[in-house]
């Protein structure tokens, strides 16, 4: 039996404890922050946020991390996405277009932020669009909003200063809170290109 010297044995114990704690913290941070583990109802690429669902500890942790302030049943619903239509994670160095229909007769707001809710910093002070200021096209009044670091024609949100990307679509109507829109009533997010591809 060749035993380790006490110093090395203690060192190994410290390494094991530190590695275990770090692994636990990182896995918890990843699981709480990852929308893919959201048990909330998904509508296409959008996930419905419900801060009231406290049964699942991960949901409770996510709600707490968001800091609260979500919408109640008589206010409307909140949908978020961190992936594009191809289920690839949204990247702050890529440009995207959000195109398609929006629920009719409902006040909606679309907000561009990072995953921690920080808003983009741009000279126009533009962090999204609403049903009252977005351009609409065709009889279905479809929206076409692009976002990215380089200015594009039409409705555009500059994502300058963001390290990650999250889109939040809030629909203000008690009706949509009881009967959520289908995926065919919501826009989809498609990539237009990324900085390294363009460069």
């Amino acid at each position: 039996m060749n035993r380790l010297p006490p110093v090395l044995a203690s060192l190994r114990l410290i390494v094991v404890v530190v590695a275990g704690v770090l692994l636990g913290l990182v896995s918890a941070w990843w699981a709480i922050g990852n929308l893919r583990f959201e048990s909330a109802r998904g509508i296409g690429q959008w996930s419905m946020v419900d801060d009231r669902s406290k049964g699942n500890p991960y949901e409770a942790a996510r709600a707490a991390r968001r800091g609260g302030g979500g919408l109640g049943p008589s206010e409307g619903i909140e949908l978020v996405t961190e992936v594009d239509a191809g289920n690839r994670p949204l990247r702050a160095d890529c440009a995207y277009t959000i195109a398609g229909p929006m629920p009719q007769g409902v006040l909606w707001t679309l907000t561009v932020s990072d995953r921690d809710g920080r808003l983009p910093v741009n000279p126009a002070g533009r962090f999204g669009f609403t049903s009252l200021d977005a351009m609409t096209f065709g009889p279905a009044r479809e929206v076409r909003i692009s976002l990215g670091r380089d200015v594009r024609p039409g409705d555009f949100v500059a994502t300058t200063g963001l390290a990650s990307l999250r889109l939040t679509l809030r629909l203000y109507s008690p009706t949509v809170a009881t009967r959520a829109p289908g995926r065919e009533q919501l826009p989809s997010v498609t990539p237009l290109g990324c900085e390294e591809e363009a460069g």
Binding site: G20, G24, L25, A28, W29
Partner: peptide, 11 residues
Amino acid sequence: IAGLTHIATVL
């Protein structure tokens, strides 16, 4: 240890 830390953190 990672499992315990993970559960404690989430809770």
